[in-house]
Design a protein around this nucleic acid. Structure first.
Length: 888
RNA sequence: GGGCGCGUAGCUCAGGCGGUUCAGAGCGCUUCCCUUACAAGGAAGAGGCCGGGGGUUCGAGUCCCUCCGCGCCCA
């Protein structure tokens, strides 16, 4: 395509360039030209595929989204300009508890799975008005209706996110979006689960698991928070049997005494060693339990001996499993004590005491049992207040209980050393940015103490795709689940029938029952690479995009999203899911607190975009180094905006020489036309002869190498810093130094050299800025190019270095240094910069004086120096005789 | 308690392999300048025991040890 032919499609350089309106203008242009669409015809080696994090759309927009997504976009744009076909999809995470909660509050409804589907149900008229919703009773709706409401609300949330992401110029391929609850994701999620089941990587077992009594669901290890909460030690008496002494234990959970199955002390603890193997009787409930030894018992805690209950905490689970103890459950799924005591409680007194606890919450029962023990004399003194760490569900506000239930697990190395090591090895096969983040991955794996619990007793999620046959008594036959035909996925076992059954057999003896549970949201989002790349649905796409090249994500979810994704890819593909993990930091408010909705310190991005523009907001984001938390600093937006304005003005200055009606202008155009399309390959037309011009091109070549190297290493911040620093020196010094020559004051050849090199540098700088500030870069590029800068080829240093013709950095450095000294002399004399210097005396080393001689005309013109004399000296010094001040 | 990271100018932060772009940038502050790309701008200046203390080395923001302070992840 010849540049002449497209002359008419180019915009003229405006008289007063401005940033306003660029975002809408170029977003529309990009959308129309489709330059961000993935080219499926390109082979794997030319593809760069990105596993974009699906944002939780039920949250609100804030600057944190802008921050990390901009980092990814910079890399995507760089790779695209480097010639790769960038696969850059977008997902929405609308699956799971956050969405359920938002829907409940927004519409004022609750899900009742026992209700039938109502096809005519409309959203409540007061939906979205919290004060109105709060005044009325919540409306019970069926599970399918509830899910419809979830879908309705998430659809509008997703539009708001897409608007924001377009506004900040993400070069996402918007024809490739997914939502974690859509049919495609449910299908992939269920299919992957069924394949895990087939290979034995998923299994179901009745076992103690962490249980949130508020949300009524099991939760996984990765979702735990330890919180320090107040509690109290109760010192209780366990009566020795066969005439042995009583044993006193300290416990924070006396209400669990009815579920006590043993006492345990450290094997080396001399105080209790004689008692190992003997028994004691629990206070009041009078159940005989053994005294056992286990290394996990802490001799320094309380009296050094603990009671094992089923179950009070995770240590109980370990002891129970390793010491082969029975189960005596008292806490139910609702967090209350069961109506009946465990069968082991036989005595009338014990059963009477238990009756005082039955139906109470754990906290209520604790108070009651303290009274019971006080009456019986089995407690020593008053409870002693302490604070201790207690496990919570990260989204919950009541302590977790441990209840025995039937749950689905996926193996993750928590109970298998070989698998554990294999997953650690996968981490070694990936490039981590920054590198030290891998340590977090490894330490998480090292600390795993069980497999990954994926079933959740919730509604808005991907259902476990199984049914169970019911025996003649109506009890499910757990060991032989009925699987769906893969072609029918996704299925909802609560609404769909298994193959060979009809709806009338649901819940009937001899019929079937659907698995009531859904999968944890991470069980689906751990499959984002498979979801995005067309696994099992588009084998060609999968082959050209998987394993993916990049997973950008925040560092706090290494243990969840990153790790679980590695687990799935390891099982499914025997591979890493991606070659690079880029971990981003958080946005902190100016007081260095993490920005979050609950803290109320969130900055709304639309407001910032309004005031500073997308390029300025991106500039701020790009200054945050990989993995590093960044404080929100409004000053950075101003700086970014100033940089964008400067790029407009500097580009205008350079390009408008072409409009001068002089010989040099004709000559520049002739030389560029002679090169034709090679200009786009980075060639510089012959004719750059000026030493200062060549010196600048030499340094520009170095900048291209630095920036490319940094971007290859995902260090966008370094690339921007180098580019920005060069650019300011270019405008402050180089342009000032060559300005007179470019205007033709030293003849045509000198002007041609100046203008050609300025144009070459502008071209390169516009391209180097393009990944960071895509809107303004596109604007200035289109002033002289028919096609998008974002589809142009990333600059190469070779042609620039060739054009520099062996020049070094020094001429430019010396010229700028002398000019700086002259400016200082004028500034210190409080005279305008245009003041004439009658005579400047420059002393410097011989080498630098020699360099100065080659560029002296430029220096004299820029400094308005009439006479410049040089001498040798140890270092640079400049003495200036300024022209006398004109009489007022 | 373990792991990781961070302490450099008033503020926010750069400082790839120890030595000529090692005392740096921007902001803020002070002063000056409407100069034919840019006043939504430009030029210049002042400001620092590079957290403390040891060590390695001819030489240490840079490497090692230790202490202090801060943050994050996990127990």
């Amino acid at each position: 395509m010849s540049r002449l032919a497209d002359e008419t499609t180019r915009a003229a350089v405006p008289e007063k360039p401005a940033l306003e309106g660029l975002e809408a203008k170029w977003d529309a242009d990009w959308e129309a030209s489709g330059i961000y669409r993935f080219d499926e015809t390109r082979p794997r080696a030319e593809v760069f595929s990105i596993d974009t994090p699906p944002p939780t759309v039920s949250g609100s927009l804030h600057v944190g989204h802008v921050f990390s997504y901009t980092h990814t976009d910079i890399i995507a744009r760089y790779r695209r300009m480097s010639g790769q076909a960038v696969f850059y999809p977008m997902g929405w995470d609308d699956n799971g508890l956050p969405t359920e909660r938002r829907v409940q509050n927004y519409y004022g409804v609750r899900c009742d799975p026992s209700l039938p589907y109502d096809p005519d149900l409309a959203a409540p008229p007061d939906a979205g008005r919290p004060s109105a919703v709060a005044k009325r009773r919540t409306i019970a709706v069926s599970r399918p209706n509830f899910i419809e409401l979830c879908e309705e609300l998430t659809a509008s949330d997703e539009r708001a996110f897409e608007d924001l992401f377009r506004r900040i110029g993400l070069s996402v391929d918007w024809t490739r979006t997914y939502a974690t609850i859509d049919a495609h994701c449910r299908r992939v999620s269920q299919l992957a689960f069924l394949e895990n089941l087939e290979r034995g990587e998923a299994y179901q077992i009745e076992a103690p698991s962490l249980w949130d009594t508020t949300f009524q669901t099991a939760v996984a290890q990765a979702e735990l928070d330890d919180r320090e909460v107040p509690g109290a030690y109760h010192k209780l008496r366990f009566a020795g049997t066969g005439g042995a002494d009583d044993i006193w234990i300290d416990t924070t959970r006396p209400e669990l005494v009815p579920s006590c199955v043993a006492l345990v002390a450290h094997p080396d603890d001399g105080r209790y060693r004689p008692r190992f193997g003997s028994t004691v009787r629990t206070p009041v409930f009078d159940v005989e339990v053994p005294v056992l030894a286990h290394a996990l018992a802490d001799p320094d805690k309380g009296t050094g001996i603990a009671m094992i209950c089923t179950f009070g905490d995770t240590a109980d689970v370990t002891w129970w499993r390793e010491l082969n103890l029975p189960v005596r459950t008292v806490i139910g799924r609702d967090g209350r004590l069961a109506a009946e005591p465990p069968a082991a409680v036989e005595s009338a007194a014990g059963r009477a005491a238990y009756a005082r606890l039955a139906g109470k919450t754990a906290a209520q029962a604790r108070a009651e049992i303290a009274a019971v023990f006080a009456e019986s004399g089995d407690i020593d003194g008053e409870p002693r207040p302490i604070t201790h760490p207690v496990k919570f569900f990260e989204k919950g506000d009541k302590p977790l209980e441990i209840v025995s239930s039937r749950q689905w697990y996926i193996r993750n190395g928590g109970r298998d050393d070989d698998l554990r090591q294999a997953l650690i090895d996968r981490g070694v096969q990936m490039n981590w940015v920054p590198a030290y983040m891998r340590a977090r991955y490894e330490s998480w794996i090292a600390g795993l103490n069980g497999d990954w619990l994926i079933s959740r007793q919730r509604f808005f999620g991907v259902p476990i795709p199984l049914w169970y046959r019911l025996d003649a008594d109506g009890s499910p036959l757990w060991d032989a689940p009925i699987r769906p035909d893969p072609g029918t996925l996704p299925v909802d076992p609560s609404a769909d029938c298994p193959p060979g059954y009809d709806e009338s057999q649901r819940g009937r003896p001899g019929g079937f029952a659907g698995d009531p549970d859904v999968m944890d949201t991470w069980a689906t989002s751990s499959l984002t690479p498979q979801i995005a790349t067309g696994w099992r649905t588009d084998e060609a796409l999968y082959a050209s995009t998987f394993p993916m090249d990049m997973r950008p994500q925040a560092h706090d979810i290494i243990r969840t999203w990153l790790f679980s994704t590695v687990v799935r890819a390891h099982f499914d593909a025997g591979a890493v899911p991606w070659h690079n993990c880029a971990l981003s930091g958080w946005i902190l408010d100016p007081d260095r607190k993490k920005m979050s909705k609950s803290r109320g310190n969130v900055q709304v991005p639309t407001d910032l975009l309004e005031r500073y523009g997308a390029d300025a907001v991106r500039y701020w984001a790009a200054c945050g180094r990989p993995g590093t938390d960044t404080a929100f600093d409004e000053q950075q937006f101003r700086i970014g905006r100033r940089l964008a304005v400067k790029l407009l003005n500097a580009s205008k200055f350079v390009l408008r020489f072409a409009e001068l009606d002089d010989v040099a202008s004709v000559e520049v155009e002739r030389r560029e036309q002679a090169l034709g399309a090679d200009l786009d390959a980075g060639a510089v037309p012959a004719g750059v002869t000026g030493p200062l011009d060549r010196s600048m091109l030499h340094r520009l070549a170095g900048l291209v190498d630095d920036a490319s190297q940094a971007l290859d290493a995902f260090d966008y911040a370094r690339a921007l810093e180098r580019t920005e620093s060069f650019f300011w020196a270019f405008t402050d010094d180089h342009i000032e130094l060559v300005k007179a020559r470019a205007y033709g004051e030293h003849g045509t050849a000198a002007a041609v050299s100046a203008r050609l090199s300025l144009r070459a540098a502008s071209r390169v700088l516009q391209q180097l800025f393009a990944p960071f500030m895509p809107f303004v870069a596109e604007e200035v590029w289109r002033w002289w190019h028919p096609a998008s800068v974002h589809a142009s080829a990333w600059p190469q240093s070779g042609p620039l270095r060739a054009a520099a013709g062996g020049a070094g950095a020094l001429p430019g450095v010396v010229a700028a240094a002398v000019l700086g000294e002259v400016r200082r002399a004028k500034s210190e004399a409080k005279r305008p910069l245009r003041t004439e210097v009658l005579r400047a005396t420059v002393a410097d080393t011989a080498e630098r004086i020699a360099m100065l001689a080659t560029v002296v005309d430029d220096v004299r013109a820029a400094g308005r120096i009439s006479e410049l004399v040089t001498s040798e000296g140890p270092e640079l010094s400049v003495a200036c005789d300024l022209a006398p001040e004109a009489a007022a």
